[in-house]
């Protein structure tokens, strides 16, 4: 970049980037543009499939108004935020611990074994995770209660009460996504040049100092990526919760996407559901921008 000669003659034509980019851009655009525009237009209409006899008149921003003044929308959004704030720190902390364990030299067989098994939760079908959750957290024949009995606690009716069900979906999410965080952290750790790490180890015996001074810069980009992907995923989280609790009992596990699905495909009020989904998209984009601004170096 500092080389002036390269600036004048980068070695490629003006249109070269275009040709490399065109296929992906065109494909995404062609597949995505119609549905996205359709959703945008739908969000401006009264669009209820079960009232198709009334037609689908334009109503301006009425759907957005309705969504913003709908207490359930805000409740479910707040619940989703709470879910994120519970699972994300746990996943980051556990993920980092796991990554450090895997990064530490020695015990090669165990390390390889543990690393390979990390892939299993990631690959497990979300819908199956939910079904599994229903089996594991069953009050009578669930294995979760066997474990807590082992530690001397009485059996819990996990899915039958609000706090238990919320905890149960958190546990399943942490199980499934901690490995993802761990792998990203691990690759960050392995980017630290060996000489620097060795030199630092000679100077300090404190793991904490090593982590914050030497390794942290290499972990931050992955950390941002994690935040962005997990935020987007939690806002879209549907399969696991739907198969596990359907958003119940009461509204204890009704996350925002469960609610939108309910409005969109149970009540069939697609005008409102589209408005909700687009608002959610805006929130996700804002969050992602925020993370990038604070943690990520912009792509040059």
């Amino acid at each position: 970049m500092s080389n002036p000669a390269r600036r004048t003659n980068p070695g490629y034509g003006r249109w070269t980037p275009f040709w490399f980019l065109a296929p992906a851009v065109v494909a995404l655009f062609l597949i995505g543009i119609y549905p996205t525009l359709f959703a945008l237009v739908t969000s401006l209409r009264q669009y209820n499939l079960t009232r198709s006899r009334d037609g689908f008149p334009f109503v301006g921003l009425a759907n957005y108004q309705a969504v913003l003044s709908d207490p359930t929308f805000w409740d479910t959004l707040a619940r989703t935020a709470r879910f994120f704030l519970v699972v994300m720190p746990v996943e980051i902390a556990l993920g980092l611990c796991v990554a450090l364990l895997l990064h530490r030299p020695g015990l090669n067989f165990l390390r390889a074994l543990a690393r390979v098994t990390l892939v299993i939760p990631l690959a497990t079908t979300y819908a199956v995770v939910g079904l599994l959750g229903r089996l594991v957290f069953n009050r009578d024949f669930g294995v979760a209660n066997s474990f807590i009995n082992l530690f001397g606690f009485p059996a819990l009716d996990w899915l039958g009460n609000s706090a238990g069900a919320f905890a149960a979906i958190c546990v399943m999410d942490v199980w499934q996504w901690t490995p993802f965080c761990a792998l990203i952290f691990l690759s960050g750790l392995s980017m630290v040049p060996v000489e620097i790490e060795e030199a630092a180890k000679l100077e300090t015996t404190s793991h904490w100092a090593l982590l914050t001074h030497v390794q942290l810069p290499y972990l931050l980009p992955g950390f941002t990526a994690m935040l962005i992907l997990r935020s987007a995923d939690v806002l879209k989280l549907f399969d696991v919760v739907f198969t596990m609790t359907r958003g119940g009992p009461g509204a204890a596990t009704e996350l925002i996407s469960i609610y939108i699905q309910r409005v969109g495909f149970r009540v069939f009020d697609l005008g409102t559901a589209s408005a909700q989904a687009l608002l959610l998209l805006v929130i996700t984009i804002l969050l992602a921008r925020l993370y990038i601004r604070f943690f990520y170096r912009e792509i040059e």
């Binding site: 609000s162 009461g250 509204a251 009540v267 009020d269």
Partner: peptide
């Protein structure tokens, strides 16, 4: 009537909240 599915959602939400004592 056609409104039942929408009403059913409301009844289901608050009906189960009643049972939970919420």
């Amino acid at each position: 009537f056609p409104a039942w599915p929408a009403i059913s959602e409301v009844v289901a939400e608050f009906g189960s909240k009643m049972m939970l004592g919420e």
